[in-house]
Design a protein around this nucleic acid. Sequence first.
DNA 1: AAGTGGTCTAGACCACTTT
DNA 2: AAGTGGTCTAGACCACTTC
Lengths: 242, 242
Amino acid sequence: MSVSAPTFSPLYRQIKALLVQSLGAGEWRPGAAIPSETELAGRYGVSQGTVRKAIDELAAEHILVRRQGKGTFVATHHEQRQLFRFLRLVPFEGTLEYPDTRLLECRRTRAAADLARLLDLKAGDGIVYLRRLLIFQEAATVLDEISLPAALFKGLTPTKYEEHKGSLYRLFETEFGTRMIRADERLRAVAADAATAELLTVREGTPLLCVERVAFTYGDRPVEFRRGLYRTDRHYYKNELG
Amino acid sequence: MSVSAPTFSPLYRQIKALLVQSLGAGEWRPGAAIPSETELAGRYGVSQGTVRKAIDELAAEHILVRRQGKGTFVATHHEQRQLFRFLRLVPFEGTLEYPDTRLLECRRTRAAADLARLLDLKAGDGIVYLRRLLIFQEAATVLDEISLPAALFKGLTPTKYEEHKGSLYRLFETEFGTRMIRADERLRAVAADAATAELLTVREGTPLLCVERVAFTYGDRPVEFRRGLYRTDRHYYKNELG
DNA sequence: AAGTGGTCTAGACCACTTT
DNA sequence: AAGTGGTCTAGACCACTTC
């Protein structure tokens, strides 16, 4: 076998690691097809079944998507199914619609110590900071603060944001080559302060759902910190415990 | 012209369905070993690989647990790993400890229309209703209201509850043969009313995390409705978006 | 040594998509 | 017809547990 991975693990995991490595290096772009199982088997000198098991795990993690008869594709945020993996808000009544957004702020700043720790940076490293509202059916519902490593998102401007009226993660993926794979969230209930209350058109002190998120790209590298304040009078946060 | 084909499912899914059926019927109790892959293969007249794939999926759903060299076992809530699958509260500081509980109420009642709908019952069907506090490090943190179909949990008394100082789901599994497999949760932020505030030792109006849960047993049968009110000043609700 | 799950292989055939 | 992923089989060998 032509495989030499640093750690000892089953063959199919070594293949999986090689695939993730190629994905992280941008060898195959989101939405594109990766080589067929038989071709990969030949390339790595293993059987098709072993490649298959590697791809099985990547598909289970939503990193790859299989389509019978067509091939295996790099997952992308440009799919309806993926859209709400990272936005768990569901209306109590009616159907879910994708929100409008209003950008409030977009500037460069520097990472404080706690943010630097979360994003695996040094204190003082450059940060792109966004603030925005998500508006469902004319109702401002979410106030988001988003911090990104400036090194990865250098050209992120209000113009770029506005051009890309849709998911931020689509923008990140197409314009900056950074795809979000998974995220950790911490939820708690907080009271709206005066400034937040005005933006969300609620009374000061109204209970809000505070959602703090660290999002990760290939190889579990943290690349986004986000704090969202959610009105939960018309929507709830949906979670499935499996 | 072809008429729509009858629902076809691959062999390994049929095997999986048979296994779930046996599990739901109590043929193998939680914690017990199921027959070996080779024995099941013989019983169902398929290859070991096909049985293996069925078990793979059940293991991924935490319904079965494999232990190399020993066998495959029915998952049980009597495992540390499983304990916090259904209790997502994590302290901001320090390590997670299992809470004490204080039972406030335990009585029989009848299902209102909305509860009946959630639990797939008829309005007026018997319900066992519990109310309790979860207490972390001397601090009352969660106020739970729990509704269960009386048909399944007939002998649930305060005595039974107190005997079983631990997870409720352990009690359900060992005493009533009903094992919780997965749950859907709806989260929102609410203000504490006077009665709740007193129980959780917070001021009236304090923002609380409201967590509504429907839990399911084998075959996606809903068997519990729960509404929890969480203080989130010392704990947060942890979620992983995969 | 025997039994269990875990990995890897090779080949056959099926279902779906495209040419 | 050719290429892709999806299923199923049979057999070999490995790693772990128990006797």
